[in-house]
Design a protein around this nucleic acid. Structure first.
Lengths: 192, 192
DNA sequence: TATTTTTAGCTAATCTAGTTAGCCATTATA
DNA sequence: TATAATGGCTAACTAGATTAGCTAAAAATA
């Protein structure tokens, strides 16, 4: 009678569903159906209901992204590492549109958990930036800028928001180069 | 007996509600209540229901942003104009969090209307970039980068995603300078 | 002006999804 | 084995979106 599900498994299946149908179409009913159970049964795994499921998807997404980012950065330094991380981020989003939505969604207003979840990925960027000899503040500015660009670009791209036929790959690389130049200029420059 | 409402008025009130309570809390029931009518009556103004309301909010938001951007760019050129536009964008989002959500939301996957709605704001940027003597592709890259950064930054900032105490104003200006440098370097540089 | 049409409101009712309560069989454990 | 915990179920409730059909006010027109 028991389906032998565990929380992690459910989260992964929900994440796949989100990638296929979009996060708003991951309803408890549809998810339960996919799992071969009835929706109220999901409350045995997620007592907080849909809200908790979304939170878990958010956490799962950020963990996955962090793994991916960490993986591609291994053995690379400076610009090479930044490039690798940026491309990994972009690929991640293109392969996980639904999960990416969840990563930005959960209790957007005032969520400490969201802040914590993003830390892992952010800190990978920070580590790479160590090699550039920047001040703490300069590192913060650089990471923030990178992060803003990556999120904005991925968001717009994944929703088909860039209407122009010009190569998005080229735009992406141009942008990263530009940001890296900005970071370079900080070295030895005046305090910002 | 008639409340004397018109579509535009309702959209503006809904936009204010979104800014105050978040877009997800703008339900037909709550909106109708605010307007002193019952929710089914809203279908007389929005035959497409909530979905149409959200679409209208999206359009209204992009129009408002375009007005704002156009307004601040008047009488300015090049870097001055870009700075003004970027600050206007950031201010707009900080004053209209809910509307900004709506601007990103509507039928995210495959919406031509969304594409059209963003054109106005985008084209202001294009016009300003005329002064830099770039190729068409270079302009596209530049606008895309700016847009991605602005959206990402505003999104993260407005949801409290930047946990570090370092000044966000400084990060914002650093980023714009960096992008402007990148645009400068394109002038006379090789084709990208 | 009188009539007709359109508009913009209403109530009642339906549908869908989330959620809660409480039941019961399986599984694990003392 | 006896007991407890787990993970499933059905029934029932809620809230919000939506539809259908009614009606009075307003506006257009004969």
């Amino acid at each position: 009678m028991k389906a032998g599900l565990d929380k992690q498994k459910i989260i992964e299946i929900a994440a796949n569903m989100a990638d296929e149908k979009g996060i708003t179409n991951v309803t408890l009913k549809v998810l339960a159906n996919e799992l071969g159970i009835k929706s109220p049964s999901l409350y045995k795994h997620f007592s907080g209901g849909l809200d908790e499921l979304n939170k878990e998807l958010m956490l799962y997404g950020w963990c996955s992204l962090e793994s991916e980012i960490t993986r591609v950065a291994i053995g690379k330094a400076k610009d090479d590492a930044i490039f690798a991380i940026c491309h990994a981020y972009r690929n991640f989003v293109s392969n996980h549109k639904g999960l990416f939505e969840a990563m930005q969604w959960y209790n957007m207003y005032q969520s400490k958990e969201h802040l914590k979840a993003t830390q892992g990925s952010i800190s990978v960027l920070f580590q790479v930036l160590e090699a550039y000899g920047l001040t703490e503040k300069q590192k913060v500015h650089s990471v923030r800028m990178l992060r803003a660009f990556l999120q904005g670009f991925a968001d717009i791209e994944s929703h088909g928001g860039y209407g122009n036929p010009t190569s998005l790959d080229d735009t992406f690389d141009f942008a990263i180069k530009t940001i890296l130049n900005g970071i370079c200029d900080l070295q030895g420059g005046e305090e910002v």
